[in-house]
Design a protein around this nucleic acid. Structure first.
Length: 425
DNA sequence: TCTGGGGTCCTAGGACCC
DNA sequence: TCTGGGGTCCTAGGACCC
């Protein structure tokens, strides 16, 4: 039996999340900004209609925002993450296998679902997800993941399909692919699309008919797989268990430029506590950490970027130890006299907790640290992030993000629960 | 004033081995 | 003039994704 995949994608996800608890935003333009209120990263349809492009710096569209009363929000990842979980939980009721592909997308395996109940299944999903979570979704169905992505695109772009497009209903998909731009294909980015254009490969149909040896040579094995998938030959399967992360990065731009070492150290060590939490959550340890600092590359001030990797004597996920080595790295790369914009830390060479090689000279009492970390994680998880923190993180938080338009954490913070006035008419 | 923050996979080429 | 023929492992960098 032929494989069958559905890609379910939340429409304008972050903007839709903001709308759930704030119905006044319905039919109004809504945009959500990146960290530090920098760029536009989500737009409602009304905002798209105003010509606001993805990734535009907020300050460049100030006029459009003011003139059209666009509702602007800082990103609220606590809210989006929680809503995402609800959507994914709901979706898992509709298919035996589901792959959560990103915060707002999931592949569903429809392979085993018989045709008689399959009809209109996409519409059922759409209706139920909206009803259960308040989030509008689009559904694309096809015999390969790449084609399901295309089907989803079509479902979203053409109102006549009402949010669902099933490519498996067509015996000949060439007519569909003929009208699909090559640069919108999953796996074709900026560089490849430029290359393809120069070879007169402009549509999905052109790419489907490309010599796959050529694709292999010029776009690696990944490109060759894309070509096969366009031919209805599945090369990618559903991945139900998310793999452990091989690298974990935490970095943030500062709310304002910083020059003092102490401020940057406070930011960096706070990022490291996040790294420690993430490592412990997936029961892994890092064998190395890389620390970097950088100035603002958009500014006309003197530029500096540097990074330093430190191999840890014993793989670890305990925060004090990670802090210890990261601070050593930071001291090595910090230079006075620059105006810094961002710092970050990457944990690499990550291995499972139970595969650690200790060494003979290791003097760290690992059992004690593990117990301490467990206790701290428990406290901070139930009472709020950084309720108990390390002295080196400081209290001033001069590096903190700009988040001027943050919505309440309606679903994850007691104090932010929606209140309803029953007397009010 | 103001420009995000995460990830993955693949390949080429060098070091090194027998 | 002539200078083998395999391997493996690691890393940096480039492509992609959301």
């Amino acid at each position: 039996m032929k494989k069958k995949f559905a890609l379910v994608d939340c429409n304008n996800f972050y903007a839709s999340c903001e709308r759930i608890f704030n119905p006044k935003l319905e039919n109004k333009p809504v945009v959500v900004l990146s960290n530090n209120d920098g760029c536009v990263i989500a737009r409602s349809n009304e905002a798209k209609a105003l010509g606001i492009k993805m990734g535009t710096p907020a300050f460049q569209i100030k006029n459009i925002i003011e003139k059209n009363n666009v509702n602007v929000f800082s990103s609220n990842y606590a809210l989006y993450g929680d809503i995402s979980q609800r959507v994914m939980n709901s979706l898992s009721k509709f298919a035996p296998k589901i792959e959560v592909y990103s915060i707002d997308e999931a592949f569903l395996d429809f392979s085993g679902i018989t045709d008689d109940i399959f009809k209109d299944y996409g519409y059922v999903i759409r209706k139920k997800i909206k009803q259960w979570t308040g989030i509008p979704v689009s559904v694309g169905i096809a015999h390969t993941k790449t084609l399901a992505k295309i089907a989803n695109h079509i479902a979203k772009k053409n109102p006549k399909y009402n949010g669902v497009f099933d490519m498996t209903e067509f015996s000949d998909i060439d007519e569909i692919l003929k009208n699909f731009p090559v640069d919108d294909i999953w796996g074709v980015g900026r560089k490849y699309s430029k290359l393809l254009m120069s070879k007169n490969i402009k549509t999905a149909l052109d790419l489907k008919n490309t010599d796959d040896k050529w694709a292999r040579k010029n776009m690696t094995v990944m490109g060759q797989r894309t070509v096969f998938e366009l031919r209805n030959i599945p090369c990618f399967s559903i991945n139900t268990i998310p793999a452990d992360k091989k690298n974990i990065l935490v970095s943030r731009s500062f709310g304002k430029p910083l020059t003092s070492y102490a401020d940057i150290e406070q930011a960096l060590t706070t990022h490291i506590t996040r790294i420690g939490e993430k490592l412990r959550k997936q029961k892994s340890c890092a064998q190395a950490v890389t620390v970097f600092i950088m100035t603002n590359s958009f500014a006309k001030t003197p530029q500096y970027f540097n990074a330093k990797t430190i191999q840890l004597p014993v793989a670890t996920n305990n925060t004090p130890e990670l802090i210890h080595y990261s601070v050593i790295a930071l001291r090595m790369i910090f230079r006075k006299g620059y105006s810094y914009k961002k710092t970050g830390v990457i944990a690499t060479d990550i291995i499972p907790e139970n595969a650690i090689q200790t060494n003979f000279w290791d003097k760290v009492d690992r059992k004690k640290y593990n117990d301490l970390m467990k206790t701290l994680d428990k406290i901070n998880f139930s009472l709020g992030r950084d309720k108990v923190k390390y002295a080196i993180q400081g209290t001033k938080k001069r590096w903190k993000l700009r988040q001027e338009k943050l919505s309440p954490c309606y679903t994850t913070r007691w104090n932010d629960l929606l209140k309803i006035d029953m007397d009010k008419k």
